[in-house]
Write a protein that binds this DNA or RNA. Sequence first.
DNA 1: TAGCTACTGTGCGGTATCCCACATAAGGTG
DNA 2: CACCTTATGTGGGATACCGCACAGTAGCTA
Lengths: 238, 238
Amino acid sequence: MDIPYSPRKNALIGALPMEEWLRLISHLEPVVMQLGDVLYEPDQVLRYAYFPVNSIVSLLYVMTNGASAEIAVIGNEGMVGTPIILGSQHSSCRAVIQSAGYGFRIKANLLRQEFKTRPTIASLLLRYTQALITQITQTAVCNRHCVLEKQLCRWLLLSLDRLECSELIMTQELIANMLGVRREGVTEAAGKLQKEGLISYSRGHIEILDRTGLELKSCECYQVVRKEYEQLFPPRAF
Amino acid sequence: MDIPYSPRKNALIGALPMEEWLRLISHLEPVVMQLGDVLYEPDQVLRYAYFPVNSIVSLLYVMTNGASAEIAVIGNEGMVGTPIILGSQHSSCRAVIQSAGYGFRIKANLLRQEFKTRPTIASLLLRYTQALITQITQTAVCNRHCVLEKQLCRWLLLSLDRLECSELIMTQELIANMLGVRREGVTEAAGKLQKEGLISYSRGHIEILDRTGLELKSCECYQVVRKEYEQLFPPRAF
DNA sequence: TAGCTACTGTGCGGTATCCCACATAAGGTG
DNA sequence: CACCTTATGTGGGATACCGCACAGTAGCTA
């Protein structure tokens, strides 16, 4: 199968020096990522790591009573499957496609092999892991202290950063699942944002109209995460 | 300075094969860890990694408005300073001594060196990092969905697991800072637990009377974290 | 075009937590 | 022992979010 994107559109893969990239390319397999597809279930052995190029993956923790909360969101800046390089067989989260698109995957044992033998790759993936930890940390803080409306702004911005366009295909119900709140709460918060002209939505389509306005309305948690990812790929190299 | 504990009382160091341990020992420097001491401030270069033996360190995120939330707690099962091995110069959290005691530290660049050249050490520290990620993840989930009383149980249990005794030196005010809630909320929740005979406290001393009862009252988040750390050190080896 | 389904809007009572203002008490210090 | 600081207890009003019930509506499908 061919997909109309190069793996190098994923920032991690794109950040590799030519030599490493040429090694890796034969291991990468294109995948279509469809809305709602589940890449990982908790306690299931991880067979692949995924590199989204224009899709978004959510790490979603589901409690025994069914309540859920998004822990992190991963797009073309990252990789799904950090437990593989950290030496774990499984993820404690479900990994689910939040926005459809394309990506590439690599077999877990091949990735492990590359990680062990290629310091450049290892170093890059570890720095990415640190950025992911920062995102999870910020999720914890935000869950504790930020009101829903601000959290929604943060969530929209994080998602937007991982897409090319300004439209999200996403119902309020699904956003509520991600944020771990009621659907009605999202309706109310989104209604406010719409009244203020920041977004416009209808039946599963959300259009961001005023990105700067959203950033102003968002809690500080968004900027913290964003900065961490920015310094992941320093302007100097490659 | 001598301290009355061996570094091997720290589970990570204790899990090293003899050869690695002998290499590492000369790099380890004993430290007294006093209540309230700050090991790291955000955005400050990390000079050391710390291995507590009978002390507890909290990773505390502080927002610009002063609100705070504990992200993870680290005791003799772990290491403070994972960003060092992940290739970051700083931590986004403050690391503060939550319970006084002893520990050992190693210079950041020496740790980096060991991490790069000794696969056994690298593998162990990476597995630990995964367990820490699980703890942070669970903090995020718990902050979202669990009521204060259950969170308090979880917090007490996590702290207790990292100490030898059943007494915590800790005011309700400090616990409130950790959990990111009001002091009065902690007073109320702790009062309930005391009425039920699970704990007994007075002016900064908390005694756990019924550990099993606390586990039953706690949310599932505690068990998830605990299991992750248990499987970090598989019974087979050493 | 009719009908159905999925998505969104709204209202109401309940609860956990917050914010603020004190009251009480324990234990160290002079 | 008296005092003072620090820790804990309590109450009242405000707020954010929940849970539930149901109404309205957009867009697909037959």
